[in-house]
Amino acid sequence: MNKIKSLDDLRKMKQSLEHGMTIRENSNSPESLVQIRVAMATCGIAAGARTVMNTLIEKLEKEKIPAVVTQGGCMGYCYAEPTIEVKVPGKDPVVFGKVDSAVAEDIVVKYIKNGELIDGIIPVNYQSINEQK
């Protein structure tokens, strides 16, 4: 390791390192960031959820959108796997079905970044137990 010889060196070093810590920093305040949950049950994985998750993470990074991407269990939409749930702060969560890598990139750019609605939204017809008062 080369020695850090100046404050500039230190700053450059920080920039190259902070990348690896982003996931931890972001998880400190998930409610203020875009949260995406990828359904990762057996059927989801079989339909390619892992690739979709990788694409999402890469695309979000490229677009410099701070987000928390987590894995979830089966959401029940077996006919539409892979499915992902996207929660943009201040908006209701939206579930997208039949997401492949191309759709995933569209979701990041069009829905998350520009706020446009795109095809593939599954109407939410359930209430989770946490929402019941």
Binding site: L7, L10, R11, M13, K14, L17, E18, G20, M21
Partner: peptide, 14 residues
């Protein structure tokens, strides 16, 4: 490295 990534040693630098 993890300390530096969290702004470690930035205070002494400043």
């Amino acid at each position: 490295d993890e300390y530096i990534a969290r702004d470690g040693y930035a205070a002494i630098g400043k």
